[in-house]
């Protein structure tokens, strides 16, 4: 047991999972108490708008039957990726800068793609789809499935990791700049002044953007496997 090393992101994953569960319980309480005839406001309004947006995105590309089961998955993944990406703001280690996490998220999407492909084509058609258009193309088909997995997971990982590394480099640079200012001692005054804007870009904007891109790509990859409307 002693030579098993626990990665430091595991703790922030646990914290985020617990926080997400508590948040969902809180939102559920609010939604159950909500009177459908009254004017929605606050958390309820936010949740209605978010659900409508994502449900619209899913319904736009797929059909109603698929959307019933796909929308909850997409919303869960979006919430988790968003919370993970902004975890750096709360001085937690960002889980999405650990490749295991993003690889798991990518693998989930790739498995869903295969499941929907199997459902749409049936067992015979699914096996046939691996050998399309000619039997030797099976190698290319297998490679293309792996490249989907790699590109989905590496995009998220690379973006968030590079944001984190850039922020730490900038903090070091600002620290050595603020040492030149007299009377301030070791206090990183430049960091306090400059870093919030960069945090806004690298954590908030990039986090929202990457979560959005991940779910958009997941939806369109899954929609590609469905039969024509």
């Amino acid at each position: 047991m002693s030579d098993i090393k626990i990665q430091s992101t595991v703790y922030s994953i646990i914290i985020i999972t617990v926080f997400m569960a508590l948040l969902l319980v809180y939102i559920n309480r609010k939604l159950v108490k909500f009177d459908p005839l009254s004017q929605p406001k606050g958390v309820v309004l936010l949740m209605i708008m978010l659900t409508e947006t994502i449900d619209g995105m899913v319904r736009d590309k797929t059909n109603d039957e698929v959307a019933k089961y796909l929308t909850p998955y997409i919303m869960t993944v979006a919430t988790y990726i968003f919370l993970s990406n902004i975890a750096g703001l709360f001085s937690l280690e960002t889980p999405t800068s650990n490749y295991s996490v993003t690889l798991t998220l990518g693998a989930l999407t790739v498995i869903l793609i295969e499941v929907y492909s199997f459902k749409a084509r049936g067992a015979k058609g699914y096996i046939k789809s691996w050998f399309e258009p000619m039997p030797p193309f099976v190698i290319l088909n297998v490679l293309s499935k792996f490249s989907t997995l790699l590109s989905l997971s590496l995009r998220l990982f690379g973006n968030i990791l590079s944001g984190g590394i850039l922020m730490s480099v900038i903090y070091q640079m600002l620290g050595s700049v603020s040492k030149l200012i007299p009377f301030m001692g070791q206090f990183n005054i430049m960091g306090v002044l400059v870093a919030p804007v960069l945090h806004f870009y690298f954590d908030l904007f990039s986090g929202v953007m990457q979560a959005f891109i991940f779910i958009t790509l997941s939806i369109s990859f899954i929609a590609k496997e469905l039969p024509e409307k």
């Binding site: 590496l154 995009r155 990982f157 690379g158 973006n159 590079s162 959005f212 891109i213 958009t216 369109s220």
Partner: peptide
Amino acid sequence: QSMAIIGAAISETCAIYCLLVAF
């Protein structure tokens, strides 16, 4: 808009691979 975001995201993969190799 959604097509442009998907296109930009897919072409961005190349740059991210470059960045990862550099890291």
